[in-house]
């Protein structure tokens, strides 16, 4: 029997770069904007992170709204509040639209700070428009332990401790389809053979269970094996470890995300061909791709 249309999740990449935006001809293919991904499920629109990529998403949503003559009800989940995950928010057109609804969700670890962090980046010293002046109906919510249901999507999350300041990974489930967004985490530290503490073992187990069987895993793959030793503690993972861990957990499709700013399109093309063919030939195969701006994949 054909799958119900309402189970399909459409995942669009609006910003795939890590750390800082990298405009220019050498990053045109994979994109220079920082983290932003949208999930469309039936009539529900979920946004993951508000890096500089959210600017183009905002323009697209605005055009859709005008074309279809509908309102906007958006849900923005922040993995954490480092610059490359929030910097696009002041340029997000729907935030300026009266009548638009924007619910922002983030880690409870930030407590009351989530609101003040977002407000502070729109302080007059950094940006000409203050957050209070935004016309949209904006609510800022701390996620709780319970699973959240929005439309036909169920959302659960876990804290990722191996990133400076912390970071949250999210899982979105619709029927039997699962999309996991797990960026900004240093798996090399989590799976460091020398760290045999029970706390670390519990963290490993939690992670493996969380990503197990995902139809799409969007994962931090910022460094090559050669680069990683000089980047220990920065909170990002080495590519082969991310891929092998995903494969062991029977992930069906893996999107390598949060590209290192120094990596050009041709460099990412070479990495892509190196790993894609290897894992496509395995039994069972796993599809791997390097996330690129302007690409929508059906899940």
């Amino acid at each position: 029997m054909a799958k119900s249309v309402s189970e399909k999740i459409y995942v669009t990449f609006w910003g795939t770069r890590g750390s800082i935006s990298t405009p220019g001809s050498s990053t045109e293919k994979y994109g220079g904007n920082t983290s932003c991904v949208s999930l469309q499920h039936d009539k529900t629109t979920i946004i993951l992170d508000a890096g500089t990529g959210i600017r183009n998403l905002g323009i697209d949503l605005f055009q859709q709204m005008k074309q279809n003559n509908t309102g906007l009800k958006l849900h923005l989940f922040l993995s954490h509040t480092h610059w490359d995950h929030i910097q696009g928010l002041p340029f997000f057109v729907p935030a300026y639209l009266k009548g638009a609804k924007l619910a922002i969700y983030g880690s409870p670890k930030k407590e009351a700070f989530l609101e003040s962090i977002l407000q502070r980046q729109m302080d007059v010293n950094y940006f000409p428009v203050e957050m209070n002046a935004l016309a949209a109906d904006i609510s800022i919510n701390e996620i709780s332990k319970e699973k959240l249901n929005i439309g036909g999507l169920t959302i659960d999350w876990q804290e990722q401790v191996y990133h400076p300041g912390g970071c949250v990974r999210y899982r979105f489930t619709a029927g039997n389809k699962k999309v996991v967004y797990a960026t900004d985490v240093e798996l090399d530290k989590m799976f460091d053979q020398r760290n045999k503490t029970s706390k670390n073992k519990a963290l490993q187990k939690e992670y493996l269970k969380f990503i197990h069987g995902a139809d799409l895993l969007i994962a931090d793959g910022q460094y090559t094996t050669e680069e990683y030793p000089t980047k220990v503690g920065y909170g990002h993972s080495s590519i082969p470890l991310v891929i092998e861990t995903a494969y062991q957990q029977k992930v069906k499709q893996l999107a390598i995300f949060h590209h290192e700013p120094q990596h050009s399109d041709s460099f990412l093309d070479r990495l892509c061909s190196q790993f894609t063919q290897k894992y496509a030939a395995k039994k069972p195969p796993m599809t791997i791709f390097w996330a690129r701006e302007g690409m929508t994949v059906p899940v």
């Binding site: 892509c272 599809t287 791709f289 302007g294 690409m295 929508t296 994949v297």
Partner: peptide, 25 residues
């Protein structure tokens, strides 16, 4: 330029990835 799948039965692929829509490079 973009390529968009029109709800085809067997899918449209760009560089081996099944897409719904993709900006072409």
């Amino acid at each position: 330029f973009l390529v968009e799948d029109l709800d085809s039965t067997n899918g449209t692929f760009v560089n081996g990835v099944k897409i719904s829509r993709c900006i072409l490079r």
